[in-house]
Amino acid sequence: MKYQKRQKAIILLADGTIFYGKAVGNKQGTAFGEVCFNTGMTGYQEIFTDPSYFGQLMVTTNAHIGNYGVNDEEIESDSIKIAGLICKNFSYDYSRDAANGSLEDFLDKNNLLAISDVDTRALVSYIRDNGAMNAVISTDVDNVEGLKKQLAEVPDMNGLELASKVSTKEPYYFGDENATYKVAALDIGIKKNILRNIAKRDAYIKVFPYNAKFEELEAFKPDGYFLSNGPGDPEPLVEAQALAKEIIKRDLPLFGICLGHQVIALANGVSTYKMHHGHRGINHPIKNLVTGKGEITSQNHGFAVNREEAEAHPDLQVTHVHLNDHTVAGLAMKSKNCFSVQYHPEASPGPHDSSYLFDQFIENIKKN
């Protein structure tokens, strides 16, 4: 073990439950957020840099984290987005030819507090039974009452707008400017691999801030529009909903992923709700109701679309469902060039079963 005398640490949940661990490396401190878990066996670096995880304390169910190091190319944004890391075994040493460095150094560079030696099986079981909730991780183990008071001040994820915290401040371009198609993308927490997947299908993308108006996107003269994934509650994103309504009204090609999917539902008057503990992992089973085929998918969301309202909507079709809990996993509009999914077809690493959705978006653009 690299560190013989590591600092004791605690995980304090909003309901007062405490779990124990040790700080990774020599780092000390305190971090607040909503505690959640991811069931992926690989891809920790992609998870940690995914903007959809902004403000969350990530519990990894895989027993070993850090064993294959990090690679500069395996990021989904420009920095770590999780609020803190909770794991069982943290590997200070790594073995992979493609690695650029250790996970420990990567966390230090991003000033992230991580706690290991935690009974993550017990913690995940507790979250599954009692739901995702706010929590604090800290090396200040003798100040439980003080931590409780600070934790009580942390806003609940329900009703929390976080897209503005991770969105680009200024528009930027991605891909080949000589590509056949042009796509205007609204960044409400966009992952880099989404941009890569759209760009490699002969599209040039202009990415806009979360609060951009339709006129700004339209000025790019795009062939299609995209609403990205992202963190937080979709309901407060009134500007994104207004944008979606305008695109839908004009019957322009529109594709939404995850938070973008929820925004499209809200734009159609269908409500969303906070899930008990959400879907986070790279092994979630989905059924495509149009083709009858199953898909293993990557998912990361704590909110979902109201299925009863979606099925009752005269112009919406539920195209995909989650096979574990039958929640809405995909929507399409019957009379408009618009569709969306609740999961991540660009997942990297992760299954490729759903990559056809990007092809479908381009086909919709061609038909317009």
Rank of each mutant, 00 (worst) to 15 (best):
D105E: 14
V154I: 12
G330D: 09
I115F: 03
E218A: 00
D233T: 04
I362E: 06
E74W: 04
H320R: 13
N306W: 14
N62D: 07
G230R: 02
M275Y: 07
S340W: 04
K200N: 09
R196Q: 15
L243A: 03
K274G: 11
F37W: 11
I11Q: 01
N283P: 12
I247E: 00
H352F: 13
M41C: 14
C36M: 11
N38K: 13
L147R: 05
S52M: 01
N100H: 12
G66L: 04
V70H: 02
Y68E: 12
S79W: 04
Y44M: 10
D78N: 04
N193E: 14
T120Q: 05
F255W: 06
A185K: 00
L227A: 01
L123R: 07
K8C: 05
F214E: 03
G278K: 07
K8T: 05
A63T: 13
S138C: 05
E235S: 12
V263T: 09
E235F: 15
A14P: 06
F303L: 13
V136A: 02
S138M: 06
A329R: 02
A267G: 04
V290M: 11
V70P: 02
P171Y: 05
Q4N: 15
M58F: 05
Q45R: 08
E308Y: 08
V290C: 08
R128Y: 05
N324S: 14
F106M: 10
H352C: 15
S138A: 14
T168W: 03
G278C: 00
Q56G: 15
I198L: 12
T120R: 10
K192N: 09
I137C: 03
S298M: 09
A63N: 12
N300L: 13
K182I: 07
K366Q: 08
L147C: 07
D315L: 04
E246L: 13
Y173C: 01
L357C: 10
A203N: 02
D50M: 03
I247M: 02
N337V: 05
A347V: 01
N324C: 10
I257R: 02
H276F: 13
F32M: 01
S102P: 12
G260H: 02
V328L: 13
A185F: 03
S95F: 12
D176Y: 15
P314A: 10
Y181I: 05
G131Y: 07
L113A: 12
F19C: 04
G292E: 14
N26L: 03
S138D: 06
P222Q: 09
T42N: 13
K366W: 11
L243T: 00
K366M: 10
Q45V: 08
S125L: 06
Q45N: 13
T60E: 04
F303N: 06
H284W: 07
D117K: 05
V328N: 04
D129T: 10
N211F: 07
V318P: 06
V141I: 09
V70G: 00
E218L: 01
I18P: 07
E346N: 07
P222F: 02
G69Q: 07
N134D: 08
S355G: 14
I296F: 13
G230E: 04
N111I: 07
S164A: 11
N38R: 14
I190N: 01
Y225D: 00
Y126F: 08
H326T: 15
H320Q: 15
R201C: 00
D176Q: 10
